[in-house]
Structures are given as structure tokens and as C-alpha cells.
Amino acid sequence: MKKLLVIDDDRKLCTMLSQYLGPEGFAVEAVHDGREGVTKASDGNFDLIVLDVMLPTVNGFEVLRHIRTQMDTPVVMLTARGDYVDRIIGLEMGADDYLPKPFNTRELVARIRTVLRRANQEKEEHAVAPSSKKLVVGDVEIDLGTRNVTCSGRPVELTSVEFNLLEHLLRNAGELVSREDLCKKVLGRRLTSYDRSIDGYISKLRKKLGHEVSGIERIRSIRCVGYLYALTNSSEVHVLEGISCSNTVSI
């Protein structure tokens, strides 16, 4: 049975979630203010945390910041409906997904299962002996085994979702990738109306890698369609096995 921590000051909602999620195979513990949430998250071995933005004592963003400095436990944030700023901030700070209030409990369960499934897949990949394969596009290099990233030789810290998003963009560098495809391949779900998760992660990648490469926009937004990672005149997509370049793929 998966252990969930719900951090929300709405006690009725917490009780309802405990009653609903139990039969779905989740053991739920709930706390009702931010400071207690930080302590509980640090002390407990939880599989996932459901975190509300609006909390007494310490708000949800600060709770998330504390969590991310200590652990990589998946976090699904609850935000006010229509407040896109809160959602983008949460994603940029390391939340794995968000759900606006009020929400359908079945949708919450679906989101929780998707995030947990993605986290489990990543753990299984890490458990396999690391490969020396690297993907190089321009000034960015990612190690597919260790999941380390460098940009112009400097290390770049990415969350697991950011890494997966960057890898997909690099493999398709120079080509338009739709938001629907990114949502399916990176987040493991279909794109829905008003879902801006991918946009939030793209914004974070731009900040971490730099908005431009060789004087052109690194990740270009194609309005209402998707994103395109830049291939400069001197850029190629290389897949390197160890120190051999025999498997180099050029686009």
C-alpha cells in the first residue's frame, strides 16, 4: 500500500480524501499547516505528497522548497482554479503535477497514479547499470546513464521531469514537437484544456540553460502548437557510446 501525505488546512477535504483513497490502495496521513507539513514530510517515508498552496504558518511554495532541498518525493500541488501563476511557480520549484480546486477525486487518483508510475519507471532505470551513452546538441550534453547535464561545460541541476523533457527536445532538435506529444511522452498523460504544465517546465529549462544559443532562441515557442529546440549552423545531434563516435547521428 502506497503512503500519501496530504498537507491541506481543509480538514473536511482531508477526511474525504482519506476515506476515498483508502479503498484505492493508499494509506493517507494528513496535516493542516505548512510548518507541520515540512516536519511530517521530513520524518515520514511517503511515496507521494499532495500539497495545497494556501496554508497557514508556511505557504505551500515554502513547504515545497523545503521538501526539494531534502528529498525527491513526488509532489502534486493543489491550486486555486484559474490561477495559472501559482501553477507555473509550483512546477518551476519542482512540483510533479498540479490540480486546480475544486477537483474530481477520480481525477486526483488518476494524477497520483500517473506521477507514481513515472517515478517508479525512473527508479527502475536508475537501478540498471548506468550506460555511458551521451546525447550532445550544441553546447548541451546529457549523460543518459547518470542523468547528468552540462551546458557549455557547467553542470546544470534538473528535476527528473525537466531532464526527460530536455532529452525529448534534444532528440528532436531542429524539429517542431507538439505540446500533446510532450505531455504524453514526458508527463505520461493526454493534454487537456487549460493544462499549462509543459509550458511551466519549458520556462524552467530556459532559465537554467539560457534563453539563447549562438545568438538565437534556444527553445522556440510555436504558438498554439508546441516547441522547437534550436539547431544552429554548427550544431549536430550526437549520440556517443563511451569515447567512440561511431554511432554519431547527424541531422
Rank of each mutant, 00 (worst) to 15 (best):
L78P: 04
V63F: 12
L231D: 01
E36Y: 00
G82C: 09
N45R: 15
P23W: 05
I142A: 02
Q121T: 02
F163C: 06
R68A: 05
V63A: 07
Y194A: 13
E62I: 00
T57A: 13
L17I: 07
G44C: 08
L144W: 11
K185M: 13
I216G: 10
C245A: 11
R223Q: 12
L5G: 07
G200T: 03
C151V: 11
E175H: 12
V109C: 11
I202D: 08
L166T: 12
K207G: 05
L116T: 04
V109D: 10
I112P: 08
L191C: 07
L144F: 10
V140P: 00
D96F: 01
D52N: 07
M93Y: 14
R189L: 10
H168S: 09
E175A: 12
V225Y: 12
K204G: 12
V58C: 02
T159D: 01
G34S: 03
I222E: 12
Y84E: 14
K12V: 13
T15N: 14
E36M: 10
A127K: 14
A230K: 04
I251R: 13
I67H: 02
N172P: 05
G60A: 01
S234R: 09
G90Y: 04
L91C: 13
P130L: 00
E92L: 02
F46S: 02
